[in-house]
Design a protein around this nucleic acid. Structure first.
Lengths: 127, 127
DNA sequence: GCTTGACCTTCCACTAACTGGAAGGATTAT
DNA sequence: ATAATCCTTCCAGTTAGTGGAAGGTCAAGC
């Protein structure tokens, strides 16, 4: 499978897929002509990356998550520990976002939102 | 007021304050010796920036907000629209994180977590 | 067999929003 | 006078890509 098909199958831009190869995250084989040759397994990793990235995991986090996926000799306890750490991370992020949402919502609620110039959002931010 | 005092008063790193000058967001006057001289109004803007940034507004958003802040004749509706867009964004992120949390949790729950190499988490990711 | 267009390659430069550090000048304290 | 602490500019690096140029390859149509 060439890069464009892999990109479409994983819902990532071609440039990004090439970048993930460059930094060693998903390194496909090469065809005779030098083209990247993506296997189904590679596409699977790409899709996983796309999902994890869109959820705020850094590429470094993703590298860890992928190593779970790739290392067949890892003790399952290690795998579980890493997964639980990721869950904690997700929980923290959710909590942060909820707080952020509340702050923004409080600001928006207090704003009459018409064409008058005075605005509680601006005043709230300036406080 | 020198840059360090301004930074402390606005709770921003000195480097960041200098950066905001560099990109033309908050451009203080200069003293005889070439030092940046921050007025109270500059500090006010800096604090505004710090708060808006920490709430997830991009510097581009901030530039808009700042111009709205400075424009006493702007409609509060413009400000509200910007804020509501931020809230939508946050909501999307929260929903996605909850989905990911569930996926990771399901994987972790199914894992026996001992020193055997086979692990349902890995199998689940490989699916 | 040749051309056209779509695809692929690498490489270099650029983005946001800083952050760190070096080199050197100014100010303040002892 | 000297040391410590500011301040300045400039250069480089960070994360996670994105855009574009220069050039090689492939499949279709004439």
């Amino acid at each position: 499978m060439n890069i464009q098909s892999a990109a479409q199958a994983s819902d990532l831009p071609v440039k990004t897929v090439r970048y993930y190869d460059e930094i060693g995250l998903v390194t496909p084989g090469r065809a005779e002509n030098g083209y990247r040759a993506y296997a189904d397994d590679d596409v699977h990793k790409l899709r996983f990356l796309g999902r994890a990235r869109s959820l705020g995991f850094s590429l470094d986090d993703c590298r860890q998550l992928l190593s779970l996926y790739e290392d067949r000799n890892r003790a399952s306890a290690d795998v579980k520990a890493l997964t639980l750490a990721q869950i904690d991370d997700v929980d923290r992020k959710i909590a942060e976002l909820k707080l952020l949402r509340k702050t923004l919502n409080d600001l928006a609620k207090s704003c009459h939102g018409d064409d008058r110039p005075d605005c509680p959002i601006i005043d709230g931010l300036a406080r």
